[in-house]
Design a protein around this nucleic acid. Sequence first.
DNA 1: GTCTATAACTCGATAGAC
DNA 2: GTCTATCGAGTTATAGAC
Lengths: 201, 201
Amino acid sequence: MEKNDNTQERILSSARKVFMLKGMAGARMQDIADEAGINKAMLHYYFRSKEILFEMIFEQSLAQFFPRITGIIDAEIPFFEKIENFCGAYLAMLQQNPYLPLFVLNEVNQQPDYFKEKFWKNKDSLFLKFAELVDTEVTSGNIKPVKPAHLFINMISMCIFPFIGKPMFMMSSGMDELQFRYFIEQRKTEVAKFIIGSIKK
Amino acid sequence: MEKNDNTQERILSSARKVFMLKGMAGARMQDIADEAGINKAMLHYYFRSKEILFEMIFEQSLAQFFPRITGIIDAEIPFFEKIENFCGAYLAMLQQNPYLPLFVLNEVNQQPDYFKEKFWKNKDSLFLKFAELVDTEVTSGNIKPVKPAHLFINMISMCIFPFIGKPMFMMSSGMDELQFRYFIEQRKTEVAKFIIGSIKK
DNA sequence: GTCTATAACTCGATAGAC
DNA sequence: GTCTATCGAGTTATAGAC
């Protein structure tokens, strides 16, 4: 119980790194142990099994992946500003966690039922809140008539996909790391601008 | 050499199915054998190793993933129609191969250098052709001034991402398979409409 | 060409000393 | 708490009969 906290934290941090990069199927307990500077036995001492360790990481990744949007949605600001705020904030988070989307979506695709059963309980839907907001704006005549589902997916896609397709896009465009970073920096305003350009009256 | 072609085809077809769903790390030779209705030994008889079999599938998947766009890009039709055609055609292809994007992007992310070395040689860039086209339209004053890289990623994102995020989106929105199918059907025109709405003068 | 049996190896997990 | 050593299950790959 001496170095308990310290080691446990190091394991979680290492596990996070390895699982993010390799996924559940590709990750090796040995990799995690190496990354943490300990041996495999210790992993099992702190977390009984690979699956338990994985679930810890996955759960905390999910929480990050789903933005706490209530603040932005319910704010007393114009609709367009909400879009700007959301895209800016979400892109900034993804910049800090570039492997998050592929990791999460991969695991969800791998076992949708397990995910639904275990992690989807009582989760209030970001989508439904957004759709409600869009419908209000449409009926108020503030924006062009658009289908909320498409607008939602468009926005999410343009934020998330660049990180999923990053290596391939970098090859296609010839960008290096720095240029890509700048590219994302631009998107923090460009994505919202693009959306608003399409739906404003 | 009797059933050669037949069996070989069945193996490739089964391997494709399994690799698409599970990825290289998650796929098992046993699964592929079962799917093909043969035993593991036969897999190694036709394809010496799992890796060789995987590369066959991966290479043919890549060819599908990168649309042969020359026909659309070089066609003698207005720019907006090119966008409409591309989005419609690409979404239709993805509808037939819904697991293709996650599979390909996952494996590329897993080993970018290996991918670049082995599969990226002499590949003419879809992106560069598109960027050239956009620049022409902008300087001709046909569309608003937009950054080609952002426009390109926006278009690709909105086509591909719905398939990557499908299970999660279905949970969020409460859609069933049929509704999702209809949703994609709509996007074949909606995506282009959304883009054009944003860049037309 | 196709099968069964098994070798060779990887990896998660545990036993047991310290 | 931490380590070394090792077990046992699962997986790729091969040997050899038919």
